[in-house]
């Protein structure tokens, strides 16, 4: 047996798994090879060291943490909606933020950029409408002008914006 062959059976030699013939060949090699003898002694020591390595232990609250995890999972199984909510909470928050942003943008766009939209009408003109005066006349089949009141809807929309005296006129007619 040479050094290379001994390397191949060194574990079996240590664990006494060699046949009688193999063991004799290994012993003969060891008797004449100090390097392999040293390697064998060193290996035995290393294996002993590996077996006596300190053993870490789990922290005292290990079991309570595990049982808490199990409880949480049980609850999630019982209420799948909550589970889905927890699972996708980040996606849901982002979607809600995007929706809020879109809604706000739409509101700002319609009220500032689009002319003639209800939101863009000056608040004074809205206050000038006198439904109390206009509606009874309409209900009686009388034209608003005849009843002494002016209904805002009878005027074209352009008047609201183009005629600056519009509000004061309405106020005067109503008085």
């Amino acid at each position: 047996m040479d050094c290379y062959s001994f390397d191949k059976v060194i574990s079996d030699y240590i664990e006494s798994n060699l046949s009688a013939k193999q063991k004799q060949e290994a012993n003969e090699h060891l008797a004449q090879c100090p390097a392999c003898s040293e390697k064998l002694a060193d290996m035995s020591q290393l294996l002993g060291a590996l077996r006596t390595l300190p053993r870490p232990v789990t922290r005292p609250d290990f079991e309570s943490r595990l049982m808490a995890r199990i409880e949480r999972q049980k609850q999630q199984k019982e209420s799948p909606f909550i589970h889905v909510f927890h699972e996708y909470s980040r996606v849901i928050s982002v979607a809600a933020a995007v929706l809020l942003f879109v809604a706000t943008s739409l509101f700002v766009y319609t009220s500032v950029v689009l002319p003639g939209s209800p939101a863009s009408v000056p608040s004074a003109s809205i206050r000038s409408v006198e439904p109390a005066a206009a509606l009874p006349a309409a209900a009686a089949g009388v034209r608003p002008e005849q009843a002494g009141g002016v209904a805002e809807k009878t005027l074209p929309d352009t008047n609201r914006v183009q005629n600056p005296d519009y509000n004061s006129r309405i106020m005067m007619v109503n008085e």
Binding site: Q45, A49, L50, T52, R59
Partner: peptide
């Protein structure tokens, strides 16, 4: 790292090999 009590990775084993080395 929070090693558990009585567990010292620096501790030498019974042989020439230290645990850290191993």
């Amino acid at each position: 790292e929070i090693p558990s009590e009585d567990f010292d990775p620096e501790k030498e084993t019974t042989s020439n090999y230290g645990e850290k080395q191993i």
